[in-house]
Simulated scan of single mutants.
Amino acid sequence: MQDELFPPAPGDSPERVLEELSTVLFESLPRSDQRRRGVEYVQGLLGVEGRKSIRNISSLFGGEAAEQSLHHFISGSTWDWSPVRRALARHLEELVPARAYVLRPMVIPKAGDSSVGVDRRFDPARGQMTNAQQAVGVWAVSDEHSTPVNWRLHLPEAWLDDATRRRQASIPESASAETMDQCCVEAYCGTVRDWGLPARPAVMDAREADVAGVVAGLRAVGAPMLLRVSANLRVAAVDPGLPRTTAETEMTAHQLMLVARPLRQPVIQRGPDGGGVHAGLTAAVKVRLPQRASRRPSRHGGLVLLGVGENGGRWPGELWLTNITDLHPAQLLRLIRATRRVEQDFARIAERVGVKDFSGRSFNGWHRHATLASAAHAVAVLSGTAEPAAEVASVPA
């Protein structure tokens, strides 16, 4: 089905879309040769088969001389990648306002230990510890597509405390130690606070996170949030619709949602193409986090624990914590679907344009590559040339 939210004009090709997009993206680059190299790099990410190395990309533009130029452009030049990302995010916001920003970690396995930020990390795709970089992508999500617009590379203390490593990788002095949770929050805050974009809901899988810390960080910038939480998260019900015996009693999110079973309501949703009706169940309970974790009262309203499941399935299927209290459960489920959309688009577009393929060592080089891979991703979306996606389920299994 033609994407209704990113409708390519008749006859629009990736080349034409890139030509129009590049005038916006590379306006901040001071020299014409830099702008030309930027376009070539994106063309290579879109056009080269297999791994998107600088050598493979340069094979489209003249071999060894082009390889040296592109290598310098990515790893040795001085152009600032942040304004390019900001331009991409604002351009997409003007075309199709995002419904949410999904915060998605990305693990990038590496063979050696010289790539900036590489460390022993758990790779969910492999189910094991591996040598890898790890970053967080901020994905602007519409109903039909999603595009990464910002990235934050997580740097372990082993890199930040090593003066030689910092110097060799050109890690900026402003970089300091942070947890992956903090990395996610800062990636979102940098997008909406520093770039002046609307504070769209931050959607994040926080099952392994310090939920109280994430909530506090997002609340500090007034962010709407929808966080998937684990069954073992401890909460206290403050909902008058529940029995008095549960009031202010701390229990796990799973236990509370079992108590709230009588509050379940049916929710009917259609798939992205108007078909594929899904019948589900939701229940919403007003909660607070334990006082010892929630160190100060919220200035942005209360929290709601949302249980989601399917008719005939186990209850609850998923648990989500949100401060968005003015939306119908069906609208919250629509935001939850954004995480499925990102997973699909990561596999069918982002990986195809080489978002994980940078083989250099420098901090700035990694960010420039990630920025231009995001631009290539946007071109694939805007031109309608991305591989078709399977329908995203409205209610989790």
Rank of each mutant, 00 (worst) to 15 (best):
W151C: 00
E173M: 08
I171Y: 01
S142T: 11
L153C: 01
E157G: 10
R165P: 04
P156A: 03
V185C: 15
I171H: 01
E144K: 06
V136D: 05
E186C: 03
E178C: 13
S170V: 10
R165Q: 09
S146P: 06
W151Q: 02
Y188W: 12
I171M: 02
V141C: 11
T147S: 02
I171D: 02
V185E: 09
D162K: 05
V149Q: 00
S146N: 07
S174Q: 14
R165V: 09
C184V: 11
R165N: 08
A175N: 04
Q168Y: 10
E157W: 12
M180L: 15
S142K: 03
V136H: 05
W159D: 03
A158K: 10
M180F: 08
D161R: 15
S146F: 01
S142Y: 02
D181R: 04
Q182F: 08
Q133W: 02
L160R: 07
Q134P: 00
Y188C: 06
V138I: 12
G137P: 03
A163Q: 11
R152V: 00
C183H: 09
W139S: 07
V149T: 01
T164P: 01
A135G: 14
Y188V: 04
L160W: 09
R152S: 03
V185T: 13
R166H: 03
V149F: 00
L155M: 13
L160H: 08
Y188K: 07
E157Q: 13
N150H: 14
W139A: 01
Q168E: 14
E144A: 13
R167G: 09
L153W: 01
S174K: 12
A140L: 06
T164Y: 10
S170F: 10
E178Y: 07
W159K: 12
S170L: 12
A175T: 05
V149D: 00
N150Y: 06
W151I: 01
D162F: 04
D161T: 13
G137C: 06
L160S: 07
L160I: 12
A158G: 08
T179G: 08
H154D: 02
A140F: 04
V149P: 00
E178Q: 15
V149N: 00
L153Q: 03
Y188M: 09
H154W: 15
S146V: 00
H145L: 15
C183S: 14
V141E: 07
D161G: 11
R166F: 06
Y188D: 08
A177Y: 15
T147W: 01
A140Y: 04
P148I: 11
S176C: 13
A140C: 02
T179A: 07
A158C: 09
N150R: 14
A187T: 01
P172F: 09
E178K: 14
E144S: 13
T179E: 11
W159M: 08
E173Q: 14
S174A: 15
P172T: 06
S174I: 12
Q168N: 10
R167V: 10
D143Y: 06
